[in-house]
Design a protein around this nucleic acid. Structure first.
Lengths: 224, 224
DNA sequence: ACCTGAACACCGTTCAAGT
DNA sequence: ACCTGAACACCGTTCAAGT
């Protein structure tokens, strides 16, 4: 499970990047100081010379992910004239990074106050809207309305696969009688979309639908 | 800190309600099997006779909170003819319950698959839309677009109070130069709303703005 | 059946000691 | 300056024993 690597010099950057790698490979619950040290071929206490404590480690992990987002966004060819297209492209790029680190939303939302890299990303988003002709007040409300969605977080109420994943609607089992509306909905929608590869529905399309709903609404407020 | 109560007979319901009370009073990080047992005046291992393990305890905690939501929703006088008003009223009622349990979103989003009480709530939401004339496909997409917001979760990217809480825009400090758009936005918006009691902005109004953006968008899809 | 106490395998973290 | 090993105060949980 834990593969030791050569005894390279430890550094904050290496510790943080290894933490991201460990969470990617083995899940967030595996990211402990002791396991991380083991991966780095070092004693747990050595980590404390590069990171104040576990909270600081998680702050650093957010930094690493946000650096990846910033790099991806920097590589985009945005049509700055069109605020809506630019925003859409930026948010979907951030989402692409988050899909590579499915545990990231769980860490971001426990981080109390926003770190510099997150705030810098939001500043970019605000700039897109400003150049698009938003008032400051509308920018403010837009940032709240987007919330985690600005970084590509979906916050679904349940994950694909539990209600109508393999077993179909029948797998709802004895509760089906209590859920007439969901049963009716699922029996129709699942049939409509039989070869969706991503589960009981294509969550990329669903994310974009929700994002567009908000962007459309903002555009209407902008021109009002 | 931990107040012992009389040695009443333990039961699953009492264990779960005490767990909610402990999280309310001392925060989610205080909700441990040992602390919960102490509050109940019992040994930690006694809890395992009423709850399989900590995961099951948290599932039960979700149940308790959802029961509170269901009770609140049942007491509403909904104008069923108007899907939009009914939906709005229902979601805001759920949000009212969540505001009493600020730790709840953090527990709900770690619950993997949806529990029966959550699914039953979603079924109600689906029913509102169905009676409002939604197609099954639009109901499906609407549920994804709402996500956690259907239960009143906001998922803000940062909490009020860290950027421009007490100290105002200046408290952004040395990073201000890197954040021209946010500085411009905050210096204007905070002035517009000087006596907001809830922090740097009124999050209830912000939540309703975001919710209305989605409901308006859905209404437009419905009539298209 | 319900509850207990000791024990185990983990955590994060402090501290004194090494180099 | 950086790393170590033992130790401490916590976790969740197993198990054998009590009533």
């Amino acid at each position: 499970m834990a593969k030791r690597i050569e005894p390279v010099a430890l550094s904050r950057g290496l510790v943080l990047r290894s933490a991201v790698g460990l969470a990617d490979a083995a899940g967030l619950e595996s990211l402990t100081m002791r396991r991380l040290a083991e991966v780095l071929g070092v004693e747990a206490m050595s980590l404390y010379h590069h990171v104040a404590n576990k909270e600081a480690l998680l702050d650093g992990v957010v930094e690493v992910v946000m650096d990846e987002v910033a790099e991806t966004v920097a590589g985009l060819d945005r049509p700055e004239r069109d605020w809506r297209a630019t925003m859409r492209m930026t948010v979907l790029a951030a989402r692409g990074v988050m899909l590579r680190h499915p545990w990231a939303p769980g860490v971001f939302t426990t981080r109390g106050s926003a770190s510099l890299p997150v705030v810098r990303y939001i500043d970019d988003i605000a700039g897109i809207m400003r150049r698009g002709g938003f008032t400051q007040d509308l920018i403010h409300r837009a940032l709240h309305a987007l919330g985690g969605r600005a970084l590509g977080f979906a916050q679904e109420l349940f994950e694909p696969g539990d209600a109508a994943g393999e077993g179909g609607v029948e797998s709802l089992g004895p509760m089906a009688a209590m859920l007439p509306n969901l049963v009716a909905m699922l029996s129709e929608v699942v049939h409509d979309d039989p070869d969706s590869t991503l589960g009981w529905c294509d969550s990329q399309a669903e994310f974009e639908f929700g994002l567009d709903l908000i962007l459309d609404g903002l555009e209407r407020h902008r021109t009002a």
